[in-house]
Design a protein around this nucleic acid. Sequence first.
DNA 1: GTGGTCTAGACCACA
DNA 2: GTGGTCTAGACCACA
Lengths: 120, 120, 120, 120
Amino acid sequence: MIIIDYKDTRPIYEQIVDKFQQLILRGILKTDEQMPSVRMLAMELSINPNTIQKAYAELERQGFIYAVKGRGNFVAYNDKLLEKKKAEIRSKIQYICQEAAEIGIPREELFDFMADGRKE
Amino acid sequence: MIIIDYKDTRPIYEQIVDKFQQLILRGILKTDEQMPSVRMLAMELSINPNTIQKAYAELERQGFIYAVKGRGNFVAYNDKLLEKKKAEIRSKIQYICQEAAEIGIPREELFDFMADGRKE
Amino acid sequence: MIIIDYKDTRPIYEQIVDKFQQLILRGILKTDEQMPSVRMLAMELSINPNTIQKAYAELERQGFIYAVKGRGNFVAYNDKLLEKKKAEIRSKIQYICQEAAEIGIPREELFDFMADGRKE
Amino acid sequence: MIIIDYKDTRPIYEQIVDKFQQLILRGILKTDEQMPSVRMLAMELSINPNTIQKAYAELERQGFIYAVKGRGNFVAYNDKLLEKKKAEIRSKIQYICQEAAEIGIPREELFDFMADGRKE
DNA sequence: GTGGTCTAGACCACA
DNA sequence: GTGGTCTAGACCACA
């Protein structure tokens, strides 16, 4: 379910957070479904349990999961999560637009970049 | 000319690199114009000369400036730099598009995000 | 494995880069094998960690290794590296050939120089 | 006669030394001919007289010129200079051959590199 | 004065 | 423990 790309420049915990966000937002992990336990997942991925812990803490902070002491972590999907994630993406896009504007790239070209991506 | 944002999560040297890229790509710094000296800029920004050194080394590696020992650093603008920077931005946009696609955000919405940014 | 020659005029970090390039290109260090950690190697060679850091950053930039935060640096050998290194050597040879041509040394003599080296 | 390339990575004094070596070895500057004065050349090239001084000192050290106090610098060409320069080039070639050998490039390929250069 | 290299050592994020 | 960034400051080559 989760595959870590060690050649990815992003930290491992971030890759895990991203992956679970996708699984939850796309409905592959359903509300109240149990998340894999920290230890199991750490074993499965051969990584440090601390790293999973950090990823889960971040997912909880963002409202994607909730922890029940002694029982584990569970999916906490609700309608607002998608909105949050969208806002995040929106903010990233606008940051790049600004970067482009600062060196004089017209917005039309950015639209083209998006269209290009579709074909690849 | 250069302002460091200590709230920015990016390292200082990277902020400096970005800022000079803009100044050069926008033509504010002209070809063969002398860059501020490592020591002077370090003093002006109250940061360590090594940090400026690192930023300048990166700019040189990317082809934005060239160093002449004992004389200083100079702007090395050439036509391909803008193309390179565009390719970089294009790649970032497509990465985000993919991220959006993975959670089911239609591309039309991304276009809207771009349009929004224009008004702000 | 790595020996620094203090009589060498080249900077230390460059000697380290060269040495690791050799070890990787000759296959002595295999793909995905872990590099010695920055601190360990610094201790072993009795030089400053920053210098190793600089060498590793350069090796990463050239595509010889990749860094994973919190885990270490790993060999990233790929087929193109040898080609790149060859192109570098080719360029050096042609530079010297030109130097020789400028003072009227016939190319045949240069071939002899190469042959001489074989016996030494 | 002398043109400095500020985009050349080599130091200016070295470019000057190289250029005069060529002029002398090719016989364009004849034995006992007077060299341009340090000040004149510095003015002409718009560079620091110290730099010319350093270049001339190096040329003298290598036996290419000799200084007469109060009169100037003069060309000291003799048969051994060409031999010296050849030995220098020979040494550079053999260094590169060794570098190539260390990563397993067969000597035949180096011969090809030389041949290639001829056509370009 | 100008850039480049290096040391010594701190502090942070990540695993 | 591991890499990455940064400071403070020295020393060298070059102009």
